[in-house]
Design a protein around this nucleic acid. Structure first.
Lengths: 182, 182
DNA sequence: TACTCCCTGTAGCACTTGCTACATTGCTAT
DNA sequence: ATAGCAATGTAGCAAGTGCTACAGGGAGTA
């Protein structure tokens, strides 16, 4: 019974790695299982559902991302909103963050069309992002700090969107000249 | 031979309407055909491919969106970047624009996973958005007007992302207090 | 030794997918 | 009237989907 938990965790990690590399578009049970080097039968032994498997994998990804973010911008320091936006923008378009943001967009798209488990997942993750930013901005002079945090997150997410479909140079220039707008 | 063109156009319009309502997530040929009240056989008579049918429908949607945008912010007027960003943000979160933005996110997600015809489509549309903004901002004092336009588009797209997965009130507050950041 | 029960493979089901082959209708030009 | 071709329906294919039934191996317990 312990073996099962261990196996499940290993599979979960393998799935997370796979999703980061390939995205979660129209991925099937069998592909998922192959990525974790097990049979589809075993995948459904560890997880009750395809949806549960995906949720677990995404939870893993989200956890990794959180660690990365905490490392990048440790919480005690309070930032001016503009400065935080600029720093976060640079972080977002950086190479290590790209796979995460790409995946994030796919989750949002899944949520947009109401496909389980994405709506729930997306809300959770978005709330996490917003809380993360809110915790780090100096609320002095802000009428609605949470709204400002949301705007910053929107800016970040938007850069991720553009990163998918505009050429890299332009995205970097946009992230770099953020100050011209803010 | 003329009948065919006419039929094709009608089907294209029906598909566009359907996509706006339901999104394009994992939509199948048969669903698409049903939405246009024809058989799947006929859909493949009008279009060579599922991909071509989707492209045509999305082109139609994009054209409609362009009209809406031109109406909302006519081109000759030059805006200060911050003012344009604020106006565009309000427009983005407004009810009539929501379905378009939702669809746009799905296109980007398709592009993110490299699924034809979305990468091409997404680049085109994104380039259109950026050009639209660039044409309307006052370049005076901007080091890189296109980069600034890109940032504005990113902000807009980000709001669309957040609109999918945060509660409506928060999104509206973010759009309203944009000035606190810009 | 026999029983139980966790683990895991094999096989398959009912269904959906994109797409095609073929047959049939109906109009048009000769 | 008839030949020819555009338009459309019917049927089906091979592949893939999520998921399940069933059986067996192996380890621990009585």
């Amino acid at each position: 019974m312990v073996a099962r938990e261990v196996g499940r965790l290993q599979v979960q990690a393998a799935l997370a790695r796979h999703l980061l590399q390939t995205g979660l578009g129209a991925i099937s049970l069998r592909q998922l299982a192959a990525a974790a080097r097990i049979s589809d039968r075993m995948l459904l032994y560890y997880f009750t559902d395809k949806a549960e498997a995906l949720s677990a994998a995404m939870a893993q990804v989200a956890a990794e991302l959180t660690v990365q973010l905490e490392t990048a911008l440790p919480p005690p320091t309070l930032w001016q909103p503009r400065a935080l936006a600029a720093a976060a923008a640079q972080l977002t378009v950086s190479a290590p963050m790209r796979p995460y943001m790409r995946l994030w967009i796919e989750v949002v798209a899944g949520a947009a069309r109401g496909e389980v488990p994405f709506p729930q997942l997306a809300s959770q993750i978005a709330a996490g992002f917003i809380a993360y930013v809110e915790l780090r901005i100096d609320p002095a002079g802000l009428a609605d700090p949470r709204a400002t945090a949301t705007t910053i997150v929107a800016l970040i997410d938007g850069l991720a969107v553009i990163a998918v479909c505009a050429d890299e140079d332009l995205v970097n220039r946009a992230a770099a000249t953020l100050g011209d707008l803010l």
